[in-house]
């Protein structure tokens, strides 16, 4: 059976959920061979084996952390040359997309980014994508070279499928270009203890209607009662009420949770682009004409300062 390379997104050996989803998709096309790079790479093997990786190629070198993107491209290319895979799958993070794109140029392949589903096809893997702020769904293929595809979080269910997961050291020789862009310093983000926005099953977002940084406590309280991640519209982010990392939309994160709750958000096209594919959508807005109500499964026309705290209390009561 053909092998499929899966690029592993991990933090010091802890595999992030989108990579496990990729393994589910990879198994539809062939046998997953994982590539894990950087500090803790070898510690990823158990989780990857548990979810179907037949092999785990690992490499660690200071270059991965000290220089931007290119050392990882060099390593992925080395893995590509060692394995001759039927396809290369990479998680659709900002960095993942850049790594995938540069690899595609090097190996003379086409690239598809931000797939939301993947199936095997007669002429190679068929990727489903959302277009025009998720108002269209397209199906595409790569027609030149080995398909390189990046896949968005929440595109497939994580499935256990135990496989060997044999760890092999990948030997990488860095290109001259690898050290072109120096990472002078890195300030890690502080953890909020809440689920990762793009991976969360429930997202609770606030917009301009929240009217102040301090009022985001109301949104956070609702999120915490539901075990949800917190999102924000660009208007709220631009006003400095909530960090940009939490922005949902075209120039923020795109989320596709089971439940999305929008409070004080009008539903501009650029916001919809990042949340329209959520399974269930709920909105609270005092303006009955707000476009967000076109998307909702359930909407409350009302003041969020009344409705949200009442909802939070009720959730807590029901959960006991």
């Amino acid at each position: 059976m053909a092998e499929v390379l899966v690029y592993v997104d991990h933090v010091d050996g802890a595999v992030r959920k989108p990579t496990l989803e990729l393994l589910t998709l990879a198994r539809r096309i062939g046998e997953p061979v994982a590539v894990a790079l950087g500090s803790g790479a070898e510690n990823t093997a158990a989780a990857l084996a548990e979810h179907g990786a037949v092999k785990v190629l690992t490499a660690d070198a200071p270059e991965f952390a000290e220089y931007l993107v290119v050392p990882k491209v060099d390593a992925l290319q080395a893995a590509y040359e060692a394995v001759s895979p039927a396809a290369v799958l990479v998680p659709s993070s900002a960095e993942g997309k850049e790594i995938a794109a540069r690899l595609a140029v090097r190996i003379g392949s086409g690239i598809i980014t931000d797939a939301v589903d993947l199936e095997a096809g007669d002429e190679g893997p068929v990727a489903t994508q959302s277009a025009f702020a998720a108002s269209f769904t397209t199906k595409s293929r790569i027609t030149k070279g080995t398909p390189v595809i990046t896949v968005k979080p929440n595109s497939a269910a994580v499935e256990a499928a135990p496989a060997a997961g044999t760890v092999e050291a990948l030997s990488v020789s860095f290109s001259e270009k690898a050290t072109g862009t120096k990472v002078v310093s890195r300030t890690p983000r502080e953890s909020t203890g809440r689920p990762e926005l793009t991976e969360a099953a429930i997202v609770v977002s606030g917009g301009r209607g929240v009217n102040g940084a301090e009022n985001f406590a109301i949104i956070e309280a609702l999120a915490d009662s539901l075990g949800a991640a917190v999102g924000a519209s660009r208007a709220a982010v631009d006003a400095g009420w909530y960090p940009h990392t939490n922005q949902v939309g075209q120039t923020g994160k795109s989320v596709s949770p089971q439940l999305y709750i929008a409070s004080g958000i009008s539903g501009a096209i650029q916001h919809r682009a990042g949340m329209q594919t959520s399974k269930t959508i709920v909105a609270i807005n005092k303006d009955a004409e707000a476009p967000i109500f076109d998307l909702v499964d359930y909407g409350v026309v009302g003041d969020l300062f009344e409705v949200v705290p009442q909802l939070t209390e009720e959730v807590k009561t029901r959960k006991g």
């Binding site: 409350v300 009302g302 909802l311």
Partner: peptide, 14 residues
């Protein structure tokens, strides 16, 4: 979807 106007019970209905 269903859209209701908050008459004091909006949070509970939600």
């Amino acid at each position: 979807g269903t859209i209701v106007k908050d008459e004091g019970e909006g949070g509970k209905q939600l």
